[in-house]
Write a protein that binds this DNA or RNA. Structure first.
Lengths: 145, 145
DNA sequence: ATTTGTGCAAATCGTTTGCATCTGA
DNA sequence: TCAGATGCAAACGATTTGCACAAAT
């Protein structure tokens, strides 16, 4: 099924707010990304999802769009896996669990990890962001529960 | 110039200790990596350096070797840049500064970043590692000082 | 002798780009 | 109208792989 009327409106508004033209594919992708809960997507995933919903977008456009969204702050790129890029729809202050076996991300609310005592930052630099990645592996002797 | 006798010995010993055959190229690469201070290298960099020193190694072997070293704990892969993999010769507990403009890493001693209050880890998982990456950008209005 | 590693070149894979065509304002 | 987007296919760059050859035990 396709996106609801309301989702379209919201997506359109969101795009205008950040100065991006609400083109058909951008509106559709924004709808998928921001229509529900927070998500962590790769370009391939999102493209696949769009196809499945009958939205016609090329993979190249998905890549472009993800980067554009990232640039204007609608998304945040998460670097955890050297082989793939993840984009997080949650752009507020938070960190991540990364399930190494499953290549899956999960948010950790920012307040649940307190960093006290950042080291002195080198002269001429300023902190752009602090990423904390808690890498997890399946606990041996536990069938997932 | 080539590696010193002592460095060769040390490299050989290090390899045997972790159960890797001390082949010519592994000994040479280990010599480059562990001969001096801690370093953050990419495969291309290390390969270039080897060539410059007249060590004959193929890029493929450099990749293989880096991964083998990583697997046995001689190196630690640092994921900060979606386009390249870095390997750190410092495998002790520590974190990183990442200079976004220059694609350069710098160690931050583990004790200089204290994380108090890790969130509850999902059932069936255990922490494999916690990575903290402090992303830095040049401070505007500062010619690097 | 047997096992393991190496080099090369080709293959892969995610991602980016050039360019002709389309589309939204 | 016309700047800005899109799609496609080709280009790309980092990494991996298959296989014949070489080296270590």
């Amino acid at each position: 099924m396709t996106l609801s009327e309301t989702q379209q409106k919201a997506a359109r508004a969101r795009l205008c707010r950040v100065g991006l033209r609400p083109t058909r594919q951008r509106v559709a992708l924004a709808g998928l990304l921001f229509g529900g809960n927070d998500r962590h997507v790769t370009a391939e995933q999102l493209h696949g999802e769009a196809m499945a919903r009958g939205i016609k977008v090329s993979l190249a456009t998905v890549y472009n769009t993800l980067h554009q969204f990232n640039n204007v702050g609608l998304l945040r790129e998460v670097v955890v896996d050297p082989s793939r890029s993840y984009f997080d729809t949650n752009v507020s202050h938070h960190h991540h669990f990364y399930f190494e076996g499953e290549s899956r991300l999960q948010d950790v609310p920012g307040h649940e990890i307190a960093i006290d005592s950042l080291p002195e930052v080198p002269k001429g630099s300023e902190v752009s962001r602090v990423d904390v990645i808690v890498r997890l592996r399946a606990r041996p002797g536990s069938s997932d529960r």
